[in-house]
Every structure is written in C-alpha cells, then in structure tokens.
C-alpha cells in the first residue's frame, strides 16, 4: 500500500498554500500610498495622493488642505462647520463631510481594522 500523499503531491499542496498565503499578504500590504478622494454631490471631483507637499483646493466653498501627509477641511462657508471639526484625516477610511455644501473628503479604502460604517 502506497502512501496516500506522496512527496510530489505534498510539494504541489505546499505550493498552493504558499500561493494562498502570498495573496493574503498582498492584500494586507496594499495599504501603501493612500489616495484622497474629494466628491461634490456624490461625484468624484478630484483625487490626489495623501503623501506629498502642501496642497490646497477649494470645492464649492470648502477649502481642503494637504499638509504633513494629512488632509483636512481648513475652512468652509457652512454654518455648522462639522467638516472643519472632523479634524485631520490620515488613515484609510477617514472622512470629513460638509453636508450643506455636499462635499466629502475621504481617504480611499478601508484599513484592516477600521469599521465598514459609523453610527451616530
């Protein structure tokens, strides 16, 4: 009676497992080089990398600034200023909304442990 799994078969299985592990790791490492997405009315208005020198754009009266590899709403003409109070965004999934001006700033993607949604 031969062995059920020969050493050749074992190599094939090991290779398959390694491929699986490689895919898994590739997914984990894909968090390099985040992209900031600015939307107006739900449509993409502008995308730019999170990492880079000082940069500022204004979308529908909302001033969005990149500084020290963080992005934040520097100013807005809205009354509630919730967008400004959202603070600095630096991680995947971080977002700031200016509902009155229908502008959103979001760091694309989702961190490994960050929630899919927020309730408030």
């Amino acid at each position: 009676m031969k062995k059920l799994i020969t050493s050749k078969d074992f190599i094939i299985i090991a290779a398959a497992l390694m491929l699986g592990a490689a895919l898994f790791l590739a997914r984990g490492f894909s968090s390099q080089g985040e992209t900031v997405v600015v939307k107006y009315n739900g449509e993409v208005e502008k995308t730019f990398p999170l990492n880079g020198e000082y940069y500022e754009i204004t979308v529908n009266s909302v001033v969005i600034r990149r500084e020290n590899n963080e992005v934040y709403v520097a100013d807005s003409d809205c009354e509630d200023k919730t967008c400004v109070r959202s603070g600095k965004l630096s991680k995947k999934g971080d977002a700031a909304f200016c509902v009155p001006n229908r502008v959103s700033v979001e760091i694309e993607g989702k961190g490994a442990n960050s929630p899919d949604a927020m309730t408030w």
Binding site: R85, S86, G87, A95, A96, S114, A117, M118, T119, W120
Partner: peptide, 10 residues
C-alpha cells in the same frame, strides 16, 4: 463603529 459622543465626528 459607534461614535464617541465626547470626540470628533470620525
């Protein structure tokens, strides 16, 4: 995520 009532919006 449940919003921290004492923190910022995020």
């Amino acid at each position: 995520g449940i919003r921290n009532p004492f923190g910022e919006a995020n």
